[in-house]
């Protein structure tokens, strides 16, 4: 078998390039905890209203005793519920998404708040939103003829401002408008 020396060098170089990328990804994953969003957790999408966690009263933004913020959202044709939420900027947020019907995806443009929402599973994403502002949440997977109409809104407000808001509203529930 004949391999040209130049080709051999190129082969080593490409292995090196790919190795570099793999190395960065592995270091990020193993030492910095940067992973694709995953938590294999099942739920019965047909009876969300009977589940405690995703009961209508329990949806939206919640601040627990330890100061952790969890946002529970239901996706269904055609919207994300609650339709509007307000969250603090620069704070770790844990979103928990479920579908009540078909496959959806949710993306907050210009941010990495993105996940598929597969019926039967809870999709969980933890992220921090650096910039305050008004953002839409857009459905990014075909979910039926009304797919283009599937969106809702998020207000990201400065941290200081949000704390006051959270305290002024009753436990957990927020503008479910």
């Amino acid at each position: 078998m004949h391999i040209d020396p130049l080709e051999k060098k190129w082969a080593y170089a490409t292995v090196g390039i790919a190795g570099l990328f793999v190395g960065i990804i592995l270091i990020d994953a193993l030492f910095h905890g940067i992973n694709a969003p995953s938590n294999v957790e099942t739920i019965d999408s047909a009876s969300l209203h009977l589940s405690e966690e995703f009961d209508e009263d329990n949806l939206g933004v919640q601040l627990d005793e330890n100061g952790n913020i969890t946002i529970r959202m239901v996706a269904g044709r055609y919207g994300f519920y609650p339709k509007h939420i307000t969250v603090p900027a620069d704070t770790s947020l844990t979103f928990r998404w479920v579908s009540m019907d078909v496959l959806h995806g949710v993306h907050m443009p210009m941010t990495n708040m993105s996940t598929m929402i597969v019926p039967g599973y809870v999709a969980q994403v933890t992220t921090t939103l650096p910039k305050p502002g008004e953002y839409p949440l857009l459905c990014d997977e075909y979910c039926g003829i009304g797919h283009d109409h599937m969106w809702s809104n998020v207000s990201v407000v400065a941290k200081e401002h949000w704390t006051a808001l959270a305290i002024s509203t009753s436990k957990g529930r927020q503008d479910n408008d």
Binding site: A36, S38, N39, E41, M116, Y121
Partner: peptide, 11 residues
């Protein structure tokens, strides 16, 4: 971006 597979498999 899917929930049904664990991160190790994705890696």
């Amino acid at each position: 971006m899917d929930p049904e597979q664990a991160k190790g498999w994705k890696l």
